[in-house]
Structures are given as C-alpha cells and as structure tokens.
Design a protein around this nucleic acid. Structure first.
Lengths: 206, 206
DNA sequence: TGAAAGTCGTACTCATCCATACGAGTTATG
DNA sequence: CATAACTCGTATGGATGAGTACGACTTTCA
C-alpha cells in the first residue's frame, strides 16, 4: 500500500514542472471551475505542450489537483485529536480544515463535472467518512441532534462550509471572522435541541 | 410602473410559443445550468429558429426564465402573512417557497454565469430583502440570534435551501421530508442561543 | 381570404477549446 | 560531454455551441 511509482525514473526539472502545474491547477480551478487547460498552463508558467506531456487529458489533470488537495487535508489532520467531547472535536476539525475546504470547494465542483461519480466518491470518501463518524459519536454522546437524517447533517455542514467559502471569496465575509462564524453556525445545526425543562440525557455531558 | 409592453401587437401562437419556451428554459436550466439553446428549444417542442425569433441571445433567454421564476415567487407570497411571531412567519415562508427555491437553484446558477452581477442583484433583490427584513424583525423580537452578521444569516439560509434542493434532486432526501428538514435546520441556525439559566428577554415568547 | 406574422429546417460563419503532430531548442545526468 | 529527457512554439484536426441567412411552409386575424 506504499505509493507505487509506475514511472520511477523522472528528471528533476520534470518533477518541478509537475509540481507547478498541479499547484496552478488547484489555484486556477478554485477560482474558476471551468478554467481552460491553457489558463492553467499559463498560471503555471509553462507551455501547454509541457502540461500535456505530463497529463494526457483535462480530467486527468483535474483529478491530480483534487488528489493533491485531499492529500493536503490528510496531512493536515494527522496528529489532530478527534477524540473526547465531540463538540470540541468538531470545532477543532473545522478550525484546522476550514481554509482548505473553502479553497477546494470550487475545485470539487470542477471535478464533479469531469470525473465519474464513482471515481469521485472513491477519492472523497475518506474525508466524508471522518465527518460522519464524528457526528455519529456526538449523537451517541447526546450532544448532537438525532431527529434529522445523518446524511443530511453531514451534507448540511458541507453546504455551510462551501457557502462560507463563497462569501469569503466574494468579500462579503472577513477572512478573519470566517472560522468563528462557521464554527458557530455548524454548532447550531448539530446541537441537540435542549427542550425547555427537558434537558436531554443527564449525566452524558461531563 | 405597470408592466409595459414594448411590443403590443403579438399573435396568439407567438404568445403560446414564448410561454412554452420560457417554461422549457426553467425546466431545462434547473436540471443543467449549462444547457444548450438547442436543448431548451427541443424541450419546448419548438425549432431553434423560433426561439431565436423571440430571444435574441442566450443570456436574454436565461434572464426571462429567471424573471418568470421570480414572478412565480411573488405571486406565491401574495397574501402570505409575514407578521406576528417571526419564527412562525419564517416557517410559513419556508414552507410555501421552499419548492420554488429548490427548483430554481440551478437556474440561479445559470444566471450567475451569464448576467452581470448588477443586473442579477436588481432582479433578485426583492426576494433577498424580504428574507432580510424578516430575520431582522426576529432579532428585534429576541427570537433570532444577533451574534452573527445579518448578511451571513440570510445567505446561510440560502445555502441550506439550495443544499436541500440538491439533496432532493439527487435522491438522498425524500421530497416529502424535505420541507420539515429545511425548517428544522433553518430554525437551528437562526435561533437565539438560549444560554442555560439566562433565557433571553422574558415575555417575548407568548 | 389574403397579407402579415410566425414557424422551422438546412446550411453557414465564427469562436472556443481539447487534443495531437512535428520539430527545434534546452537541460539534466550517467 | 553526449544522450536521453524535457520544454515549448506553431500548426492542425475535430468537436461543440452561439448566432445569422435564407427561404419555404403554415397560422392567425382583420
């Protein structure tokens, strides 16, 4: 399961080009999901032919960009404690991943239009699962609501994340305030409704 | 300010064609925001040339479809009581407009890619204002939270609406359940956080 | 019923973008 | 330093989709 290189021999400058291209693809597609191959090549400061030398088709390039972003996510979450109080864990998860998710929202859109749903799910599942497990744990702890479908809760969080990303990109939200706003909103969505005079399962919230 | 007809004389069959085209545009663009003029004409059961006879460019057609959808919204809200308790009013607003908003979500996306931001705002402002006023009133009543930017609250509701629309379209949400889920989620987002032992302004919730 | 209005197919131009072909020049690396 | 790997411009092919031109046919309506 170690990352196997089908192409072990590659020159240093080629490696550099690929890195610049992938980076440019992430940047460009995050601003405009329908960006042209030529746009991406220009942003990378590289001829279009060089790009095609490494990525045979546009979908292949988009996938590479998405995979790179997801790898960043995994790396970022390494060593992040998702145990303990689910609410706190969720806040930590959001605080550390919000920026990446925000930046990659449009990239995900681009991928949706170009990759098969199956392939997309395969790539994106790890991230989605993590969120789902955490919410489920919060439900068992009694701090997250259980009266709405789990799938909806997971996706509602995503929609809020992407929405906040867009608001930030459009300048309607101060990037400095965004994390706090996202956390507060997600908390509100997930929180178990504390009915007046019927404070949920007592004893579960230490 | 009455709707002025720049083209008073128009034959009955032309009127019919236009209606079918606009309807087809709404339907088609709501499924695929990047639908072709040809697609729309086919859906309308009309030749492409007929379509071009009434709408000179694609943007013009998209705008007509959006305007039609917005008119539907206005018509739907006529006679809807938005007074009284803001929370209840919001529930009524969502219950009656959710379906239309859901259907028009993708249409709005199409419009965003084709209309100038100014023009789009001009068309869409009435609907957005209504939501904003209602939230503001709820804040004055003490039932909606005031610790997040008003703009964000308005747009967060929109993102949830569109998200629910997408979930429904993808079959991940039962259309019968959607309204209830949307209402519950929006309530959670807007509700003033009832701090334990500090139940907000007493006397406002009769 | 006849002229104006509307319908609509075919064929065309124009622009954009993906992808390939070729080939000359440049750089890494054993 | 020689060769293989890489870069990259120009040109080309092919697909798609917007919008126009033209002209024959049909429908409305005064």
């Amino acid at each position: 399961m170690v990352s196997a290189d089908p192409r072990p021999r590659r020159r240093a400058d080629a490696e550099r080009s690929i890195a610049r291209i992938v980076s440019a693809a992430r940047e460009t597609l995050s601003r405009d999901p329908s960006a042209t191959v030529d746009d991406i090549a220009k942003t990378a400061g590289v001829g279009r032919m060089t790009l095609y030398g490494h990525f045979r088709t546009r979908p292949e390039l988009v996938e590479a960009a998405l995979v790179d972003a997801l790898h960043d996510g995994e790396r970022m979450l390494t060593g992040l404690d998702l145990g303990g109080d689910a609410q706190m864990a969720m806040n930590r998860l959001l605080a550390s991943s919000w920026l990446l998710v925000a930046e990659s929202a449009a990239l995900l859109t681009a991928a949706q239009g170009v990759l098969t749903p199956g392939r997309l799910r395969e790539l994106h599942n790890a991230a989605a699962d993590r969120m789902e497990q955490l919410i489920r744990r919060g439900q068992r702890q009694g701090v997250f609501r259980t009266d709405l479908p789990l799938t909806w809760l997971v996706n509602a969080v995503h929609y809020i994340l992407n929405g906040a990303a867009e608001e930030t990109r459009l300048g309607r939200l101060d990037p400095a305030d965004s994390p706090g706003i996202v956390i507060a909103t997600v908390q509100a969505i997930l929180a178990a409704p504390a009915v007046d005079g019927l404070p949920q399962q007592p004893g579960t919230n230490t």
